[in-house]
């Protein structure tokens, strides 16, 4: 393998990794706030992808409109799922919530088969063309994906760390009761977390479609699992952890594929997860703080 090929694969890895990271962020933020592994999160992306497909392929809407539609519908769907399925279970055991999330995932996947059909929908690439950096050929899709993801992550960092709503989110994640005693509304803060996570999934769906140009009812499940692994690898509940986890898995997959083991790339992902968790059960950046008495 030549050096330029390696670089090309790395860029590929960063591109896929960006999508994993965006999706992993939603997983991690929701877990952080209500300790739920939201297995329906991946399916939000699937719905977002269909929105882009129908907007462009069936209604010939401009891509910008399609993108806004995908993000809008994803956000709305995420918040609706939270309000309808999760809010009533807020004081129920975590296991009931987890099972509900799996149920919602099935519902969305089977609902999608019913509404959109069970077959794969293919569309023309959203972005075409590429540019040569030295001897490395980089697609515009990869550049856009990586740049957009980085911008989104900086924005998210700003929202979470610098705004009143973001600080309230961190307060609720740490101690729901104490947060309420500050006058923070749980309903509002939790819904906002779902809205942000689902909007990120919507953006992820657009970027995914830009790379693979195909939508299918079950596309969300593997993507969701990879993003989940990314979130756990980075330290579930940690926002920078989700980003690092996403990029790590994307690059890992690309390198395994580049080494000629494409068939093994999923296995490699899980192997790395197991190894990391053996040595650091909380993932790269997950931590537990002890209260002082």
């Amino acid at each position: 393998m030549t050096f330029s090929l390696l670089i090309a694969q790395l860029i590929n890895g960063l591109q896929t990794g960006s999508v994993y990271a965006l999706v992993a962020l939603g997983y991690s933020m929701v877990y952080g706030i209500i300790k739920l592994l939201n297995f329906a999160h991946g399916d939000i992306i699937m719905v977002g992808a269909y929105m882009v497909y129908y907007a462009i392929a069936s209604f010939a809407l401009p891509p910008v409109v399609a993108i806004i539609l995908a993000i809008g519908v994803s956000t709305l769907l995420g918040v609706t799922v939270e309000k309808v399925a999760y809010t009533p279970l807020r004081s129920a055991p975590r296991l009931s919530l987890l099972i509900t999330a799996i149920g919602v995932s099935f519902l969305l996947e089977n609902g999608a088969q019913l509404v959109f059909g069970a077959d794969q929908k293919s569309m023309d690439p959203l972005i075409t063309g590429s540019v040569m950096f030295g001897r490395v050929n980089v697609s515009y899709t990869a550049i856009v994906t990586i740049v957009v993801s980085l911008i989104i992550m900086v924005l998210l960092w700003f929202v979470v760390n610098k705004t009143k709503a973001g600080k309230a989110m961190r307060a609720v994640s740490e101690d729901m009761g104490a947060a309420q005693l500050m006058g923070i509304s749980l309903n509002r803060t939790i819904s906002m977390t779902f809205a942000i996570g689902s909007a990120l999934a919507g953006i992820g769906s657009v970027l995914y479609l830009a790379a693979y140009t195909q939508a299918s009812p079950t596309m969300g499940s593997m993507l969701g699992i990879k993003a989940f692994v990314a979130a756990v690898l980075g330290g579930i509940g940690s926002i920078p952890g989700a980003m690092i986890g996403g990029f790590t898995i994307g690059v890992l997959e690309a390198l395994v594929a580049a080494a000629g083991f494409s068939m093994w790339k999923d296995a490699a992902v899980f192997l790395v997860l197991i190894i990391v968790l053996l040595f650091k059960p909380t993932g790269f950046l997950g931590k537990k703080m002890q209260e002082k008495v």
């Binding site: 009143k164 600080k167 309230a168 961190r170 307060a171 740490e174 101690d175 009761g177 104490a178 947060a179 005693l181 500050m182 006058g183 923070i184 703080m289 209260e291 008495v293």
Partner: peptide, 24 residues
């Protein structure tokens, strides 16, 4: 209320904790 065991936000800075106190 100042709850039993204080329950300050351990991951937030002192200033952010105070800002949360002034949330309303």
């Amino acid at each position: 209320m100042v709850p039993e065991g204080r329950r300050i936000f351990l991951g937030l800075t002192v200033e952010e904790n105070l800002e949360m106190g002034a949330y309303t």
